[in-house]
Design a binder for these strands. Structure first.
Lengths: 252, 252
DNA sequence: ACGCCAATGTTCGATACCGAACAGACAGGT
DNA sequence: ACCTGTCTGTTCGGTATCGAACATTGGCGT
């Protein structure tokens, strides 16, 4: 598994021109991300940025009461640690691994220097941040107006898009934390989806049987986020020698 | 009123070094912003960025169903149109004037050029965007977990901080749209606050009698947003010759 | 001073979600 | 093969918010 890992599985890295990529490459370090692991805690110094390849990470906001809400998810299309180049140095959110996998990390200073270099890297990072903001917009509105079942469908679809198969490894409790609802709410919504033949699950594993069913039950938010992500990142060209392909083909 | 307007009432503009400011100044155009006016609509081309001075503008996300949610508010501490320098050219959100007042606008191209110049303007804008992201984080979590009354207090406080007096000009309907709840919900929450002697209102006007009461009833979200805004923008220095002061003194 | 319309107040039942508590069932370790 | 802990299923009442309908009031224009 580790042997098959390659920085170019991350879309941002694979989009860099060779000269820029080669400035970063010596400093990229492969890291394994385990389910539930915390990459950033609010207020602490951020030493690295992370480029997920096969892992998916949630930006979680945790309130004083202990309840939480996912602000956005980051997969191989993005980067964790945008505050570093935006100029904040810390974030008020936690970053928690939602699907185990791999990613590459880069020391904060290296990234900042490359960003300030002003090349394509800067443009890419800003573009991606813009996409992330859209994602956050939509999530906030979704929290306000859509049902738990709709939100579950949205969330499953977004996660599914980043997975190589139609099988998600994930407990209901984790999903409940991400969506900021009770675990029972997920049990119920997931039960309804299973009875409808759309998904099938067993302890910690969810298989999506009928993707179109999820799409039909989901709210508009999934489509908006997906479309905007495509629009903003569509003009990214991959390097000729990069092996970047949709993760579904790159993994395994 | 118009005569007293000055671009330096906007904190971002007032923080620019003289050379950078003078490149922009000839292109700044004073605009009056009327209550309810729409500055941006989703998907349309953004021709200008806006620097509010006395006006306050909501970034509203409007769903297919017609219901809405405020993602963040922008006053004289910020700028409208961040997508322009982030690289998106359009936003998925609407910008609606929430408190009438004035602001300055700048053609998109001028701003982009200045941003790409890479000086302090770039750093300021990125810093501000980071603060805005925090605001959005907190809003999303707040939507999920806090009561309408708590959210109303948070919202009133954030608006109050940008006003020269303790009087807000604003209907309950507008607030309901901003918070994404029914108008009746606001009527009820505002009624409770009035009975507690914290606010007093009459058609379209809200007077805050006891600010501490709002703070006590508000959720943590107000304080987090405020503190983060101060942290991120605290090292901004005003030009010596700029008249920028807290808006409470600058207005009138 | 009047009339009109927008803004506010109030009610009703319906419903989605919460909070807590507990029962069952699967999986992995020993 | 058992035991254990985690994950899932199910129940209950309680509550905040919704959705719709209607009454009332205040302020503005004429």
């Amino acid at each position: 598994m580790t042997a098959s890992q390659n920085p170019n599985q991350n879309h941002l890295l694979s989009a860099l021109p060779t000269t820029e990529y080669e400035r970063l490459a010596p400093h990229l370090e492969l890291v394994s991300m385990r389910l539930g692991e915390t990459l950033y805690e609010p207020g602490t110094e951020m030493r690295h940025v992370y480029f997920p390849t096969t892992a998916i990470v949630s930006l979680l906001y945790i309130l004083e009461s202990g309840s939480s809400a996912e602000i956005a998810g980051v997969g191989n299309e993005g980067i964790l640690g945008i505050s570093l180049f935006m100029g904040g140095d810390t974030t008020p959110s936690s970053a928690v691994v939602q699907t185990a996998g791999y990613g590459y990390r880069l020391p904060a200073k290296i990234l900042k220097d490359e960003f300030n270099h002003g090349g394509l890297m800067q443009r890419l990072l800003l573009r991606y941040t813009q996409a992330l903001i859209t994602h956050m917009f939509q999530n906030a509105a979704c929290y306000r107006h859509h049902s738990v079942e709709q939100q579950l469908c949205r969330w499953l679809l977004l996660t599914l898009d980043r997975m190589p198969s139609n099988e998600l490894v994930m407990t209901q409790e984790l999903i409940a934390n991400a969506l900021g609802v009770r675990r029972e709410g997920i049990t119920e919504a997931a039960g309804a989806l299973q009875r409808a033949g759309i998904i099938r699950y067993r302890r910690g594993h969810i298989s999506v049987l009928e993707r179109s069913g999820l799409e039909a039950t989901s709210c508009e938010c999934y489509f908006v986020v997906r479309k905007e992500l495509e629009r903003l990142l569509s003009d990214i060209r991959y390097r000729q020698n990069s092996v970047a392909t949709p993760i579904a083909e790159a993994a395994c």
